[in-house]
């Protein structure tokens, strides 16, 4: 328990240790800690920004989706409309075409009928004349009686 030179030795050792710590220990460690602190702060900041960006992007995407949906609904509606229109038109066309065809056929039939009638009439007239000739056993002036015959034939 004597006080002696140990005292000075201890003081010197202490001074050297403090100097060493101040020079070579403290700065690198605190520097690393500070840098990390800065990095973490930056990272958190970036994360916050990214989150905000993400929110914005999500909103934008939702909006775009909404718009697209609306647009597609519109397109579908339009398509439906035009489809009905086309169908309608086609039906109309078909109907008119059919009617036209029917009308044409009818006209043709009429024509044919008329022609047949005319032929028949002519043949009937001839037959009638022939018949009359035979009945009268005389020649009938065809031209003189044609009016009569024709009247008869038209009555058939």
């Amino acid at each position: 328990m004597n006080i002696n030179l140990t005292l000075l030795g201890q003081t010197i050792a202490f001074a050297i240790f403090v100097w060493f710590t101040m020079k070579f220990v403290w700065p690198p460690i605190t520097h690393a800690m500070q840098e990390r602190q800065k990095k973490i702060a930056e990272g958190l900041d970036a994360a916050g920004r990214a989150q905000r960006d993400l929110g914005l992007a999500q909103e934008k995407a939702a909006q775009t989706l909404r718009e697209t949906k609306e647009q597609s609904a519109q397109i579908i509606e339009q398509a439906n409309k035009s489809a009905t229109l086309i169908v309608e038109e086609a039906r109309e066309q078909a109907r008119s075409e059919g009617e036209r065809l029917i009308a044409a056929a009818k006209a043709e039939i009429e024509q044919e009928m008329n022609r047949a009638k005319d032929q028949l009439r002519a043949q009937v007239a001839a037959l009638a004349i022939k018949g009359a000739e035979q009945v009268l056993e005389s020649e009938v002036d065809a031209s003189a009686h044609s009016e009569l015959v024709n009247k008869l034939a038209s009555q058939l």
Binding site: N2, I3, N4, L5, T6, G9, Q10, A13, F14, F17, F20, T21, F24, V25, W26, P27, P28, I29
Partner: peptide, 30 residues
């Protein structure tokens, strides 16, 4: 011996402990 003496154990162990401290912390600091 009075004042002109050293406690070899005190000095030795304190320096040894100091070196452990410095060595460990310098190792990490590097």
């Amino acid at each position: 011996m009075g004042f002109m003496a050293f406690h070899l154990d005190t000095l030795g162990w304190s320096i040894f402990m100091g070196l452990i401290f410095i060595g460990l912390f310098r190792f990490v600091a590097r």
